[in-house]
Structures are given as C-alpha cells and as structure tokens.
Design a protein around this nucleic acid. Structure first.
Lengths: 257, 257
DNA sequence: CGGGAAGTTGAAGAGCGTCAAAAGTAGTGG
DNA sequence: CCACTACTTTTGACGCTCTTCAACTTCCCG
C-alpha cells in the first residue's frame, strides 16, 4: 500500500522508504511524488537537501478541492500549512456585514497557512479544481527546527508575501480604479511570464466580483474599466480571456512610473 | 574605548568581551548595552540565548535620527536591518506623481529592513527624535545561519508584520473613512495597553497628513472624522492629544464587529 | 434548449477629494 | 516676553469618482 484515501485526503508515503506510488491516478493532482513534483523548483521545498524533502514527503497529505470548497476559515486554529500543487486558491477576509477583501490569489508553488499567534488570519477556499499538499503545523515546525534551511525558505516565502502585501496597500490606498485594474493585469502578465507562459494572453480564473474584492472596487467598476480598455484598443476582451495588445501601454497606466 | 562616534554612527562593542560603555551619554538613545536594553524583551533579540545576544551586540551600531531624517529609500540595496530603540519610524511608498502610502509606523522593539530580492520595498524615515540599532545584513544573515533561533525570531516578526499588512488591506479596500479612523484609534489604544501605558490617553506622534496617507484618506477627511467623534462625545481632542471617552464605543465603529 | 448565474451598461446618488480660507500651533529672533 | 512667520489643522462649498440600483445581455451547464 503506497497511498490510501479517506475523506478525499490522500496520504503520501515517502517513496524513498521503499514504498511506491499508487497505480490509481488522481484526476487533476496526479499521483506525484516530491521527487518529480512539478512545483518543487519554485516552491518552499525547492532547493532543499534531499533528506529534508524526504522528511517533508513523510508528513504531507494530498487533498483535492472543488470550486468554492473551503480550505480553512479566519480565526480557526492554524494546525496545517499548505502548498498549492495545481489550481488557484483565494485568500480573503470578511467583515460581519459581508463586505469582503480578497488578500491574494495563490498559484502552484505558493504556500498558505502562514500565521501569527496560532490562528489563521484569513479564510481560504479553492477557485475551481485545486490540489494542495498539506503539512501538520507541529510536525513542520519540528522539521524547521531540525533543518534550518527549511525555516530559511519559509522566511523567504513570508518576506515575499509581505512585500506583495505592501504593494497592495499602495494600490488600495492611493490608486484610481483604472490604475488598479491595469496594475492587476500587468501583474498577471508578469506572473505568466515567470511561469514561462505567453504573458500577453491571459485567462482570468476568477470572477469580476473576485477581482473587485481584490482591488477594493465593485464588479461594475471592474467591468467598466475593462470595457474602456477594450474600447481604447488596449486589450481584447472576451469574458475570461484577456489579451494585452500592448503591455507597455498597460504598464504606463498603472501609476507605477 | 568602548564606543566611538563617526558621522553620528555610534559603534557598540560587546561588553561581554571586557569593554565597557562610554561614560558620555547620548541625548535620547542612552548608551545602552543589549544586556539592559529596554526594548529587548519584546524585540527580535528577546528570548534569545545570551551568546546570540553577545554576537548581535558585536555587529550592531547605534544611530540617531532627527525629525524627517531618512533611514533608507525604496529600491536601495538592502544592506542593513534595524531595530527601533526609541522614537517612531515611518515606512512609506511613493508614486512618481507624489502620492504617498504609509505602510506602517514602527515603535521601539520593531524591526525594519525586511525585504525581498535584496532591495528595500519601501522608504523609511524618522518621526521626531528616534534611535535605531543597525545590523549589517550580511553579518546578520551569517548569524542566522549559525543560530537558527535568531532566524526563527525573524520569521515570527515577519509573520506578524504580514498579518498586520493583511488587516490593513481590508481597511484600505473595504472600510469607510470613519471606520478607518476608529480602527486606527482602536489599534493605538491596544498598542499603548500592550506597552503598559494607559490605553485611553493617546498622544499621536504623527501629523494628520501622515494619518491620512496611512489610512488612504486626505488630511481633511481625517480631521473631519475626528471632529465628528469629538462632537459625538466619543473622544476628547486637542491637537495631538486624543482621549477615548469610551473604548467600546470606538471599537463598535470600526466595522470589525 | 432553458434557466440561473455572471457580466455589461446606464442613470442617479453618496462619500470622499479638491480648493479655499480661517483658526490654531510652533518655532525664531528681536 | 512678545511679535512675526510658517506650518498644521479645521471648516466650508463644490465637484468628481466610484457605488448603488436596475435593466439587459451573455455565458454556462444541466
């Protein structure tokens, strides 16, 4: 027995310990081992010694999520860390009256579950079919103690998130609606480029309402901004497909220079 | 010789190595050694083994700043980390046209210089007379490698900052002007309480313009919100002195529940 | 196909920004 | 100690951007 399934939770056993992957493949996650994990190169686990990777593999479990499935809720005890292996995760905070602020969208290789004071500071759910690998917090912390390189990678990941959050504070506090939308498109293009995809042709995995809640705007305002960009000939737009006709023109509209 | 002065930079030599503090006292920093540093208990260096503290003391230098003195600028090479020992530091981002977003205000015990990709992601300057102790980044990183407990503390500090930044994203993206101002006052009261000061009696070290640039508002809007709170009898207000007449009333206006 | 959700577009309104002026505060030098 | 000046804060009037509300269209999935 190399893996088993309980409640949609798939436990991975370290192949290095003489166990082999299950022959049954998971629909979209794939029955990947850390050794050939597609996201390892740019994830927290990337660039680590093999013995650390093996120890990580020993404590992780895979889990699949469908559209809108919750991963965890703000305020819950933070008992797990997660790494996205496929799909997209939406992080958000809710106000008692229902107003929502989306904190970020996570893509394969990103970590979630970073917290302070043993409580999740935001809620997380899946945007479409998504697969996460999950680490019990206590055991991961123990591993960080034994392997300082792992803690170093966590610090790097956290610092990176912090820098992004600060950039979003500027966006939310000081940019106009059009600047926010073009900043958003520009960043999506950069991310696509970093993944080796064509940066001009974007497929938005999230709704207009999600974009609005991320940019501090309403759906209508997002829609209007996109329509104006289309009318100006800056983008082609058909529903979730956006094509940046000139990335420089978009960049010049972000307010960032 | 226990310390010397070059360009307003005061180098501390580790007292544990047999050197003693200079008899000449610095105006507001005090000629403190790490052993009796007033901020150590709640700073990064708190809770660390004594040998780590000694090594930290060996690489740090003190530096004083006056009102508005720059500490570093966004985009510069991040060659130092800093810890606030007295005063207040203002972190901010500027847009090319002069719009400013204040990322945070730092008080004694807080770290600055956290970064990504070896570049400061924001600018920092002093709010009034301020004293920082400064660590060369390379040497601090080397210490973190030797003493994993230090890196652990840095991770904790960074995680804490991240959680705060995310809370500010909700504030900037979704709260009304009045909710932002009451959230700000409420947080100042909490911080004062944490420091053991009376949480009802606040002294704002920053201008209305600073508060506005922190909350994504104009000075006028901040002033109007404060005036309305005063008119309602929720606060007493005389210039920089704010007295919360009922902390619960203020809290109920933050939108956070 | 058909029904419900998501997206677009328009018109009206509110909240905050802008501009302007007055009042208050602080620092400087006689 | 007071007068002078420069800056900060407050207050008011007005305008603009974005939100709200509503109708319509498009997309998606059974």
């Amino acid at each position: 027995m190399a893996s088993f399934d309980i409640n949609n939770v798939r436990t991975r056993i370290d192949p290095a310990r003489g166990l082999e992957p299950s022959p049954r493949l998971v629909p979209h996650c794939g029955e990947i081992s850390c050794a050939d994990c597609p996201v390892r190169s740019h994830a927290v686990c990337g660039g680590l010694e093999l013995d650390v990777v093996h120890e990580l593999a020993a404590i992780l479990t895979f889990k699949e999520y469908g559209e809108g499935d919750p991963v965890f809720d703000e305020g819950e005890g933070a008992d797990h860390y997660y790494v996205v292996t496929s799909g997209t995760v939406r992080l958000y905070k809710l106000m008692p009256d229902g107003r929502r602020q989306i904190i970020g969208f996570l893509y394969p290789g990103d970590v979630l579950g970073l917290h302070d004071d043993h409580m999740y500071s935001y809620s997380a759910d899946a945007l479409g079919e998504t697969c996460l690998c999950r680490f019990p917090a206590g055991r991961l912390v123990a591993l960080m103690r034994r392997f300082p390189g792992l803690e170093h990678r966590m610090l790097e990941a956290t610092s990176h998130e912090l820098v992004e959050a600060q950039a979003n504070m500027l966006l939310l506090g000081r940019k106009t609606a059009m600047e926010r939308v073009t900043s958003f498109l520009s960043r999506l293009a950069d991310q696509a480029e970093a993944r080796g995809e064509p940066p001009e042709n974007l497929l938005l995995p999230m709704s207009r309402a999600d974009i609005g809640d991320y940019l501090g705007l309403t759906t209508e305002t997002v829609s209007r901004a996109l329509s104006r960009l289309k009318a100006k000939g800056a983008i082609d737009l058909e529903n979730k497909h956006v094509r940046l006709r000139d990335r420089e023109v978009i960049r010049d509209m972000t307010g960032d220079s």
